[in-house]
Amino acid sequence: MSEYDNYIDITAAVCPITFVKVKVALERTDDGKILYIKLNDGEPIQNIPRSLKDEGHKVVKIENNGDGTYGLYVVKNGL
């Protein structure tokens, strides 16, 4: 697994609280640092990367964990 500076698991949340929790975690992450987001397949993996991009964050890597969850590595304000 790659390195990250901050971590958030949103697998227990449902839309739109998923992205709200991501925004709170990003608030606690410095610019240029990496936030790791653990999220579910389906709606979260379809929508969260797009929402991150809209707000100027760069998704640098997506890992399929093979158990119905994914891992996103996001650089805060990396776009």
Partner: peptide
């Protein structure tokens, strides 16, 4: 923010112009 507050203000926090801060 408690989970309850995150939920109450979620439609604000989702806005780019509002957000958590």
């Amino acid at each position: 923010f408690s989970d309850e507050m995150l939920e109450r203000y979620s439609r604000h926090i989702l806005l780019k112009e509002v957000g958590v801060s």
